[in-house]
Nucleic acid binder design. Structure first.
Lengths: 148, 148
DNA sequence: AAAGCAATTGAAATTCATTATCAATATCAC
DNA sequence: GTGATATTGATAATGAATTTCAATTGCTTT
């Protein structure tokens, strides 16, 4: 199951590079591979750490550069939890979603509510706006953390 | 009209300082006064620029420090538009609201939709969370910018 | 396979927002 | 007033992200 998905994502990246006349390098492949391995959002620095374990010579600037490319290619998405560090999550195969985060333990769940999406669109239109996209972050206490 | 509001906000700050055993300094008063003068959200650096015009000797670290205090006192609120700079807006006398921003001209409108708020709470509860607060940023094209 | 050129890389320097340090100064309770 | 201590401004430091640049590499053309 994951194999099929990974193959497809790697294909997409290869096609993206070809289309943009960019080169297919071992560093780019390695970084994408490590990025795909983890399902949760990850920061550039964290990804740099794990990538370094496979190739000690890789530079952190390269990790930052590749994450930018992955976003352009539609494979990654930036998420900003407001702690000063940008994080990246998988975009491909993950439909649009918002985040529900526990302020006690930090656990984050991906959520979607079609009714909210509809109301957001209506709200924007009420002010004459054509809604392009949105971000919604819900913060609360999860079930486990409530039991304390 | 503004006088009454400002007097009250300054009182709140004075009380906050007294309660916390902090001192009432001319710098803190000046920064609060300048902050209250503008209705739109402002960055620490921008506030520093305008404050400097009234007191050339003020340090920017002090502006950062006072903004932190204003948030603690419930007079200011941090907003993060994801451009790497934290901005601050009035909290007192402004009920909770979200933001609708035009991606073309940057204009931002404060919006609230009670129906969305209700659904957010319900959504969180569906996952066993007790919702504490949230942030919602809507991005689109405003009426004027659509006419191009 | 060789050659050439532009894209890519890693290391280090740089930027930008924000925070910490610290000696000098100002505030406020007494 | 006086003294303990909070506050300040200047500056250094931090941390995330970007830029610079010379050396290297990938890819196209022979």
């Amino acid at each position: 199951m994951t194999e099929q998905t990974q193959k497809t994502e790697k294909q997409i990246f290869a096609e993206f590079l070809a289309r943009k006349n960019l080169r297919d390098t071992s560093q780019r492949e390695l970084i994408l591979d490590e990025f795909l391995r983890r399902e949760q959002h990850i920061s550039a620095e964290e990804l740099y750490d794990v990538v370094k374990q496979r190739d000690r010579t890789i530079g952190q600037a390269t990790v930052y550069r590749v994450l930018k490319l992955l976003c352009e290619a539609g494979l990654a998405r930036e998420v900003n939890f407001g702690d000063g560090t940008m994080r990246y999550e998988h975009e491909f195969g993950h439909e649009h979603h918002d985040h529900l985060t526990c302020t006690a333990c930090g656990k984050t769940i991906e959520v979607v509510d079609p009714a909210i999406e509809t109301l957001q669109k209506a709200l924007a239109e009420k002010y004459g706006f054509c809604l392009l996209n949105h971000e919604m972050y819900l913060y609360g206490t999860c079930a486990e953390c409530q039991g304390r």
